[in-house]
Design a protein around this nucleic acid. Structure first.
Lengths: 189, 189
DNA sequence: GCATCATACTCAAAAAACTGACTAGTCACA
DNA sequence: TGTGACTAGTCAGTTTTTTGAGTATGATGC
């Protein structure tokens, strides 16, 4: 049960609706997990049943009503237990790696394209994360913010996301270049 | 169905038994996917049913018999199709990130320990991957190997694994240091 | 001489994640 | 006046991954 703790951790930052969480756990923003809306609504329902989060109805005009959730004491205790438990090792799991693994045996054209698209996507995310980091730390410099700031959790996971995306971008570009050179070398013969 | 293609890609390198694949897909070696033995046996059975791999019995003395598998033409075609299809985006999914996200709200002691253990594990894997890369490229230098070598797929995915582990190690050490400093600063007051 | 490790697999089940289809009102744009 | 996008969800179902428990044999170490 991993999403469970990811949701609890996200809700430590304040009250959110399922919809808001879903946006955070979608594409860019969630730097420590990824999930679809349906999963989040289901998980929130389970967490509420277990008393780890509390929801309250917020009536809205000109918009559907929503339920905002926050972590209970029991939820905080559960996170505490989770933090103490040994973590599972983490692995990269990526379609593109599988494709590159077989890239010298099968057609490389589409793979090169995909590598370049990925590199561009990674570059965009690097921009986004950079902007998020600047916003979070505000006017103070990073060392100061990390030492005295509150709620640095999100900042720290963002840093990992940033490094990951940079590594991803660099690798994609390099591998694309390597595969292209090999194509060119093969064409010469 | 991602493991499916990962298995096909791994079998492009030659004939392997389920047991051998399982070892490769376990801890260190598989730089592009991770899976447990049971999954691999199941996947191989499915692939054989679908005609994407072929198995042959190898009778052994002093060891249980085994079945070696290789990719069929249909399997190669399936990989080709897979390579052309748009890849799914890849995400980091890591318990430790979740813990760090909430690290400024709950007890940080165990998390710091885990970060340092992870950093050590990453360092060990960096060593291992470095050795694997040296073995693969042999006496020639990297640029030459990448341009003219055969079967560079495994080398390229190893490079990604190496960069990932380096990023992981650096991040773990840095975050552990940050959390420690904050603890110290808090203790002073 | 006994325990443990390595090879080589199998079966069953639970948990986690993903996919697709659907409701229903508001707002902006052309 | 309708077309699509945004808010805010729900329901049902499949696929994928993980977990746990076995089987059987030979080799290795103390």
């Amino acid at each position: 049960m991993a999403l469970k703790h990811a949701v609890l951790a996200a809700l430590l930052d304040g009250e959110y609706s399922g919809y808001q969480l879903a946006k955070a756990f979608d594409v860019g923003v969630a730097n420590f997990w990824h999930a679809l809306p349906q999963q989040l609504y289901a998980e929130l329902a389970k967490l509420e049943q277990d008393g780890l989060v509390e929801g309250r109805q917020v009536v809205q005009e000109s918009r559907p009503n929503k339920r905002l959730f926050r972590v209970t004491d029991a939820g905080r205790a559960e996170l505490e237990r989770f933090a103490e438990a040994p973590p599972k090792p983490s692995f990269i799991r990526d379609d593109l790696l599988v494709k590159v693994q077989s890239a010298d045996r099968i057609g490389t054209g589409p793979v090169i394209e995909q590598l370049e698209e990925r590199a561009a996507a990674a570059a965009a995310k690097i921009e986004l994360l950079g902007a998020m980091l600047r916003t979070m730390r505000g006017p103070v410099d990073e060392a100061e913010y990390l030492l005295r700031g509150e709620r640095i959790g999100g900042y720290l996971t963002c840093l990992r996301g940033l490094a990951f995306e940079q590594g991803h971008r660099d690798w994609c570009l390099r591998i694309a270049a390597v595969l292209k050179e090999r194509q060119a070398a093969r064409a010469e013969r």
